[in-house]
């Protein structure tokens, strides 16, 4: 493991320990009250979800067009984190929506696009898990198509129906809301980087193990 890893783990742990205090200390939002506090995890996990998806897509495309095995490992690790943070986003979202919109689920653009993106990531993992040899290239192709699909899902669902707070609300947040939110976002980002590093490390070790077995056979 690299030198920065352990200090980063400690900082991340501390941040996750402080975050609840900050969130609890933030004032209640006037109309939504307590339930609005779900935002402090929903929004950062959604951003991390998106970041992981972008990393997975870019690494996949680079791998597909003559990239090194490193890109493939990165893509696989990122895809797993897409599923993890996507699950957090997709679970916390409806819990908020139940109170704020009165429904668990709406076929709104972001919800649908997130769900589809999440499903593509799950399909990606299934392909890697059950696809057998050669599934690395196929998974990279799937990630590429998944990325290309996002604008189409957006346009089609947008024309179909829409209800979701727009992102432009974020800069207008007063500092009493903004500080915990950004703090939480940075914590999630740090956690994401750490998890990604560990997950890539796992793949590296697996590759090493395979190489050892190969050298034994030879």
């Amino acid at each position: 493991m690299k030198k920065w890893f352990m200090p980063a783990v400690i900082v991340c742990g501390l941040m996750f320990a402080i975050a609840p205090v900050l969130i609890a200390g933030a004032p209640y939002e006037s109309t939504m009250g307590l339930v609005q506090k779900i935002f402090y995890v929903h929004l950062p996990s959604a951003w991390t979800f998106l970041l992981a998806a972008i990393i997975c897509g870019v690494a996949s495309v680079r791998y597909l067009f003559g990239g090194a095995a490193r890109q493939d490992r990165l893509a696989w690790a990122a895809a797993e984190l897409v599923v993890l943070f996507g699950a957090i986003t997709l679970v916390t979202g409806p819990l908020w929506a139940r109170k704020a919109w009165g429904v668990w689920w709406q076929w709104d653009v972001r919800l649908t696009a997130s769900l589809m993106g999440w499903m593509v990531a799950v399909a990606y993992l299934m392909l890697r898990r059950y696809g057998g040899p050669g599934s690395d290239k196929l998974a990279a192709g799937l990630a590429l198509f998944g990325m290309a699909n996002v604008p189409f899902i957006y346009i089609s669902v947008n024309y179909w129906r829409t209800i979701h707070p727009t992102t432009n609300v974020v800069p207008t947040l007063p500092t009493s809301f903004g500080v915990p939110l950004w703090f939480s976002a940075v914590s999630f980002l740090l956690l994401f980087v750490l998890l990604l590093r560990v997950r890539v490390r796992l793949e590296e070790q697996r590759a090493k193990l395979d190489a050892m077995y190969l050298s034994m056979d030879a």
């Binding site: 649908t112 589809m116 499903m119 593509v120 399909a123 299934m126 392909l127 059950y130 696809g131 057998g132 040899p133 050669g134 599934s135 196929l138 799937l142 198509f145 998944g146 699909n149 189409f152 899902i153 346009i155 089609s156």
Partner: peptide
């Protein structure tokens, strides 16, 4: 998927999320 294992199940699993639009 021709070369992949469990291709029968994987085809719809991969295909449907992409063809949603």
């Amino acid at each position: 998927l021709v070369r992949a294992r469990s291709r029968d199940v994987l085809l719809p699993v991969l295909l449907y999320p992409i063809t949603v639009p």
